[in-house]
Simulated scan of single mutants.
Amino acid sequence: MLVAAALVSSPPILVPELAGSAAQETADLRQATLDAGAALGRRARTWLAVGIGDALGTVPTTAAGTYAGFGADVVVTQSPDSPSTVDRLLPLTALTGAWVRTNAASQVRLEVRTVPAATDADDCRRYGLAVRAELDASDEPIGLLVIADGATTLTDKAPGSFHEDAPAVQATVDRALRTGDARSLAALDVETCREIGMNGRAIWQIAAAAMEPVSSATELYSGAPYGVGYFVGLWIP
């Protein structure tokens, strides 16, 4: 049964060894992410994570990965008994989920599923409803780890430079995530989100379908360091 969702973001600078001089600037984001993971871990010892990938795919609970490709050989695992063999090609979504699990809820077993950023809204809804049906069919409590980033065009120095539509769309998303407004997330325009670099749109639409109605929503962090929108929070169905 689906019991809760933790909403986190996936920047590699979550990892202190990769943050360098940005470690202090991103400390609040990092701590909020760990707090969200710990809260989800208290509710469920089995997690399913959904996040962006190049294709529809599954990373099993046995996986272990490393952030070596981002500059530091920090190994993270998806279960307490993951093998010592490290997959150096795990997608960032899987690394993020495993980092949260490893550092905030080490008792948890985590499966990761990836979805392309271009997935249209109708397919996202179908995917989310299928996830909800699958998790509710289980007798054990299961937590959903939602891994999604906001617009990459919020300032002139952002990775995608500034886009005039980005601040308003990001504000809409932050408000919807803060309040558990699944309908507003479902209504996000695919093309607009693509233009402003909001790849997390597909994942939030999946989460909206899987979690609606959201009975309780809590914001732990909302901000845009380096011009990219990040949100951390908890949803209870």
Results as ranks from 00 to 15, higher is better:
141 P>K: 00
102 T>Q: 15
31 Q>S: 15
67 Y>R: 04
91 P>I: 00
77 T>I: 01
90 L>A: 15
77 T>N: 10
103 N>M: 12
43 R>S: 15
36 A>W: 02
15 V>P: 09
147 I>W: 02
65 G>K: 05
111 E>L: 12
46 T>Q: 15
77 T>K: 15
124 C>D: 04
123 D>S: 06
140 E>I: 06
94 A>F: 07
76 V>M: 10
41 G>H: 06
69 G>P: 01
31 Q>W: 08
90 L>P: 02
96 T>L: 09
113 R>K: 00
25 E>Q: 12
81 D>G: 10
12 P>R: 14
49 A>P: 00
19 A>I: 13
29 L>G: 06
86 V>S: 05
129 L>Y: 01
105 A>D: 04
88 R>D: 15
34 L>R: 02
119 T>P: 00
60 P>C: 12
62 T>P: 00
126 R>Y: 01
93 T>Q: 12
19 A>H: 14
84 S>H: 10
92 L>T: 07
60 P>L: 14
147 I>K: 06
140 E>A: 03
34 L>C: 11
79 S>E: 07
23 A>R: 15
60 P>V: 14
45 R>P: 13
128 G>E: 00
114 T>K: 11
30 R>Q: 05
54 D>Q: 11
142 I>S: 05
127 Y>G: 00
11 P>C: 06
88 R>L: 15
117 A>E: 03
141 P>M: 13
90 L>H: 07
48 L>K: 05
129 L>S: 12
83 P>A: 07
81 D>T: 07
76 V>N: 13
69 G>S: 06
114 T>R: 10
53 G>N: 11
93 T>W: 05
33 T>D: 02
90 L>S: 13
65 G>Q: 08
102 T>I: 03
125 R>T: 06
149 D>Q: 08
120 D>C: 00
25 E>F: 08
149 D>A: 04
122 D>W: 02
59 V>R: 01
101 R>T: 06
29 L>D: 03
78 Q>H: 15
86 V>H: 07
146 V>A: 01
86 V>R: 03
18 L>P: 12
117 A>W: 04
131 V>S: 03
144 L>F: 10
